[in-house]
Design a protein around this nucleic acid. Structure first.
Lengths: 195, 195
DNA sequence: TTCATTTCTTGCCATATGACAAGATTTGTT
DNA sequence: AACAAATCTTGTCATATGGCAAGAAATGAA
């Protein structure tokens, strides 16, 4: 890992958030580049998450197994996204969620300790991280409203528009459960859209 | 407002969060007791939220009007809950949501400035407020999964168990849209449960 | 290339829930 | 008390989506 090149990706992540170059010098070294290969688990049900990741490349899926044993995709992540289970990491609670690499991935990992230390000492980092959390909350809120208010076709079309690269790289059955429908229904919806 | 008595409620809110008596002396005065009467709006679509509330008594509903003009309850609040639209307050963004008192309410109001100042200067306050946000995120996550994985009857029964006081005090049509169904369906589900 | 596995599509039928409308009941107002 | 308005229930019918299974297509392994 050549230090200068490695930092390129995170520089891009942080540059828009009012963090100074000086602060970046203490922030960036806390992030470690890690790679996952297809099917690796970033987090498994029952574990307490102690670190989280910025994704540089690849695709990741989080899912839960519901009470009837169904596999339900809770979220799909791509380049630029933050992969984190907030409740587990902040409450030191065993997660109910599995997070798995769908493809080989390059990620930037930070431990909760390092995060916590910088969150308390660097106010611009604090603002940026809080924004990420609120942004996740907002996205989840939109998704939740969509599940109630929109029919499945609309949810699919919206997702297609917002995350085309995910539609192209993730299998339909995973996208379907994320949208709250079966793969069969999604297949029919796609057929209907084509005509 | 007699200072000593007024603070009783917030003392209870803060006491479990490791905030010292000393710190409470600077925190509590920032909260102002306010009352809303039935049908008052705490927040209206298009506004930027600049304060938020701890509820001491009463019931509050947040709702959005979707693209087809349907009124959809997004959340229902009761005593002890925090009434806040995180994305609006943190991003200074006009909200899409309406927040309205369903009954007369007593609340404790804090402005975003005061919040922000204490968030940056008092670490235990910061932890407590971050926990509230993560807790909201977690609740929303559970609700979202339930919308996908559970049939309507299960969602109703779970809500009935978790928030019985809301079921007893809020009209069915509001509870129904919160659960993602129509009031007609909810009425049938209730009938079915009785037998 | 060949075979096995996974993914996607399609058909048939079942079912949960919605749309609409009419009563019944409750609540609020004067 | 008496009326109006809002809320809740119920009936009939429509429809989006699910369950299951079979085949087609794509992917991966040897």
């Amino acid at each position: 890992m050549t230090e200068n090149l490695d930092q390129h990706f995170l520089n891009k992540v942080f540059e828009a958030s009012g963090i100074t170059k000086e602060e970046l010098k203490s922030i960036l070294p806390k992030y470690k580049q890690v790679t996952f290969i297809k099917n690796d688990y970033l987090l498994k049900e029952g574990q307490v998450e102690k670190k989280y990741w910025f994704m540089e490349s690849g695709f990741v899926r989080s899912y839960i197994i519901d009470t009837e044993g169904n596999d339900i995709t809770f979220n799909l992540y791509a380049s630029g996204d933050v992969v984190i289970d907030y409740p587990s990491i902040f409450f030191f609670a065993p997660t109910r969620e599995n997070i798995q690499a769908l493809t080989d991935c390059v990620c930037w990992e930070i431990t909760f300790e390092d995060f916590q230390e910088m969150f308390n000492s660097i106010s611009s980092f604090r603002e940026q991280q809080r924004s990420l959390l609120v942004g996740s909350y907002f996205a989840l809120k939109q998704h939740s409203i969509s599940l109630i208010a929109d029919e499945a076709k609309v949810r699919y079309l919206r997702f297609l528009k917002e995350k085309p690269q995910i539609i192209q790289n993730v299998s339909l059955k995973h996208i379907a459960t994320f949208l709250g429908i079966t793969d069969t229904s999604l297949s029919r919806i796609r057929k209907e859209i084509l005509s």
